[in-house]
């Protein structure tokens, strides 16, 4: 057996990776070759010393006090709000959802004034000359004719006359007398979400 091969096998043997039949061959070589035997002896001693020194915790062991101090130091350097990292990570992973959320947020923000001034009466229309406002009630008097649509927010629409267009009531109620004639649609919008869609369709110009 070649001594160079024997040296490689010695290491494999020490690492526990030499097949049994090769170990037998190696042993036979060691018996016949004093140089290799000496080398193998040194390698085994080195191995034993390494294991014992590395496994020996004495002298290098970290004391409980030092360990606790180190833990405190480690945790102190960790930035506390981990949440916003989470949040930015989520945004990076879901760009489309984020864009949609921003859009909804902006639309909601545009609604905010009406939500906050919930009790303020708003009347919109093409022809408001004949409309009578009494407190929170918007009256279309009997016998009158409104040439266009009427929108009432935060109030009651009391229609007794004729309306050529549609009547829309937002966050309020619609009363129609027997004499009332509404040429267009009548709509009552109560829910915040309905109002939201109403705003959206208005904004984008498509007539509801």
């Amino acid at each position: 057996m070649n001594c160079n091969v024997a040296i490689v096998w010695m290491h494999d043997y020490i690492d526990g990776e030499l097949p049994r039949e090769d170990a037998v061959t190696l042993k036979q070589h060691l018996i016949s070759c004093p140089a290799c035997r000496a080398r193998f002896d040194q390698l085994e001693k080195t191995e034993a010393l390494l294991s014992s020194v590395m496994a020996e915790p004495k002298g290098q062991a970290i004391s409980p006090a030092t360990s606790a101090a180190l833990t405190a130091k480690i945790l102190k350097q960790i930035p506390s709000p981990a949440r916003h990292r989470d949040w930015t990570g989520w945004i990076r992973r879901h760009p489309a959802v984020t864009a949609a959320a921003v859009f909804v947020l902006v639309m909601m923000a545009s609604l905010a004034p009406t939500v906050n001034n919930g009790s303020e009466l708003i009347v919109r229309g093409d022809d408001l000359k004949q409309v009578i406002i009494d407190g929170h009630t918007v009256i279309v008097p009997e016998g009158s004719q409104i040439n266009g649509s009427l929108t009432v927010e935060n109030g009651t629409a009391d229609v007794r006359g004729q309306v050529q267009g549609s009547v829309t009531v937002i966050d309020g109620s619609l009363l129609t007398a027997s004499t009332a004639q509404i040429a267009g649609q009548t709509r009552t919008i109560d829910q915040l979400l309905d109002r939201f869609w109403y705003k959206v369709t208005q904004t984008f110009g498509s007539k509801p």
């Binding site: 290098q60 062991a61 506390s80 981990a82 989470d86």
Partner: peptide, 25 residues
């Protein structure tokens, strides 16, 4: 990752001393 600092502290407790020995060697 959800912001639980005790969970992170737990990891530190599990590995700190092992890593110290490794780095010390």
């Amino acid at each position: 990752l959800k912001g639980d600092q005790r969970a992170f502290a737990e990891l530190v407790g599990m590995y700190q001393d092992k890593l110290y020995h490794l780095a010390y060697r």
